[in-house]
């Protein structure tokens, strides 16, 4: 045995604690840039900061293109998150409930969008839409987002359904209820937190998605496309930062809410859900 005393397992060591906090600082430093410079009274994004202003927010809110892009993004996000969660729910239910031959192949295929570069997906979709003669529009963007969001939704829902007590559904069938009504009277109320969490997360993924939208856009812009065009001209920087700060705050609220729901929803049969 060595001369120095053994360190106890799980004992807090200062080195790693400090590292973890530094890492957090590295993660959040750039994100603080957005709100800080969005209130800075200067056109050039650089230190030192010269003064405080809300001018950039006013300028940003005054732009009709921004309103249009925001509204487009919300439409695309709602369509994509609803559709993807529906597909994700069907797949998650099938995977967790039944022994299906060829299940792993199907699961691999459904998870594939997480593992291929978006540019590849974007190009492939662009080509097939062109071959099929589909006009690019917000709908084609939403379709691309459905592909991208479905594996996210499936992952969230599988995690919840995995611990689902199968005998609850069997009890409902046994009491005379049909499969479809069993889903609505037993399964759905119990997995509702996970469904809401899936809707929120997929909405955020779609809302933030740039590259697929870039490839599949028609004449209308989504918000990331609008921001992208804003980032090309330095004169547009400050209002874009203002917009970014607002998006930041809203997504933090949504993410914390979704995570909280997801955690609350993994409590197994013990949680309480109102119907």
């Amino acid at each position: 045995m060595s001369a120095q005393p053994l360190k106890k397992i799980g004992e807090r060591s200062w080195g790693i604690t400090i590292f973890a906090f530094l890492y957090l600082a590295f993660l959040y430093a750039p994100m603080l840039v957005l709100p800080v410079f969005s209130f800075a009274d200067q056109k050039v994004i650089d230190f030192p900061i010269k003064g405080f202003t809300t001018h950039w927010y006013e300028e940003m809110f005054a732009k009709p293109e921004m309103h249009k892009a925001l509204w487009n993004s919300i439409q695309v996000g709602v369509i994509a998150s609803l559709t993807a969660t529906l597909f994700g729910l069907l797949a998650a239910k099938a995977i967790t409930r039944y022994a299906i031959p060829g299940k792993s192949i199907a699961m691999g295929l459904i998870s594939l969008p997480l593992f291929i570069p978006e540019i590849l997906l974007g190009l492939a979709l662009l080509i097939i839409l062109n071959v099929a003669g589909v006009t690019l529009s917000l709908l084609t963007i939403a379709a691309g987002h459905v592909l991208l969001c479905t594996p996210f939704s499936m992952a969230v829902l599988v995690a919840r359904l995995d611990g689902f007590d199968k005998s609850l559904e069997e009890a409902s069938l046994d009491l005379g209820e049909s499969g479809w009504m069993t889903f609505w009277r037993v399964t759905f109320p119990l997995i509702m937190p996970a469904v809401v969490s899936s809707l929120l997360l997929t909405f955020i993924v779609s809302f933030d998605e740039f590259l697929l939208a870039f490839f599949l856009q028609g004449t209308e812009q989504t918000l990331p496309l609008y921001i992208w065009s804003g980032l090309r001209f330095p004169s547009n920087f400050p209002p874009t930062l203002a917009l970014g700060s607002i998006i930041l705050v809203v997504s933090i609220v949504l993410v914390v809410f979704a995570e909280w729901l997801r955690q609350a929803g993994t409590g197994g049969g013990k949680m309480k859900v109102g119907v």
Partner: peptide, 8 residues
Amino acid sequence: PFWTSYLL
């Protein structure tokens, strides 16, 4: 951070 705008 992962859930906030990648572009920004």
